[in-house]
Design a protein around this nucleic acid. Structure first.
Lengths: 104, 104
DNA sequence: TTGACATATCGGAAATATTCGATATAAAAT
DNA sequence: ATTTTATATCGAATATTTCCGATATGTCAA
């Protein structure tokens, strides 16, 4: 867990929003999973386009943000066909909270 | 609590180190409290010069960092004479961990 | 096999952060 | 009063981040 990269990834309102939206994907992305067929199980995953629409930033920016958040460990992704689905990495987020409480 | 400012303040190795050193001031700053007379009680406070020495950055940089961390809420300070003592704001740090766990 | 679609990557302009030395301020000591 | 000491602030050079449009890549459908 690269602590600094985590904090950097969290230092932006849009990225923070994405993380919060993905906490309740069915609430914030009603058409969620539309493209995700049964055989690909990736619960809570939302595709880039849906996130972009909600984030109101350019496609390249959102793609960049998601990639950055994944590299930091906040998100995990799966590619299915032409879509990439992102969801939260709850374990890392939880570890981060624990780390702040005990080590920082 | 301005979340983004907190994360920005934490997105730097030196500032992170300062926060960790101030977790155990007597361990990391042996001459701690040398200037702090009894009547000023500010437990765990360390003066800028001592922090600067350990951080190995310029005086202006460290002063800037400490100010930034205080504005974000991570630190609190007291001025006594020509010295400014900084210490951790444990409540905010704890709240941050809680917030990450529940709201992010 | 061509075209449309989803996403990723590239290149760059603008904004912000980093970090310093110089200088200002203010208190302490001489 | 003057000098020294501790810290804050200023101004600026450099590095990094933000964010976009254009383009590339890969996939699916006709």
């Amino acid at each position: 867990m690269e602590l600094i990269d985590l904090f950097k990834a969290l230092s932006n309102e849009t990225r923070l929003n994405i993380l919060r939206w993905l906490k309740e994907p069915e609430k914030h992305f009603p058409k969620q999973g539309a493209h995700l067929p049964k055989e690909v199980s990736f619960k809570g995953g939302v595709c880039v386009g849906d996130i972009q629409e909600k984030a109101k930033a350019s496609q390249s920016t959102v793609s960049h943000y998601l990639n950055m958040m994944q590299k930091a460990g906040l998100l995990e992704s799966v590619r299915y066909g032409q879509w990439t689905y992102y969801r939260r990495n709850e374990e890392v987020i939880h570890q981060l909270a624990e780390y702040i409480k005990t080590e920082i």
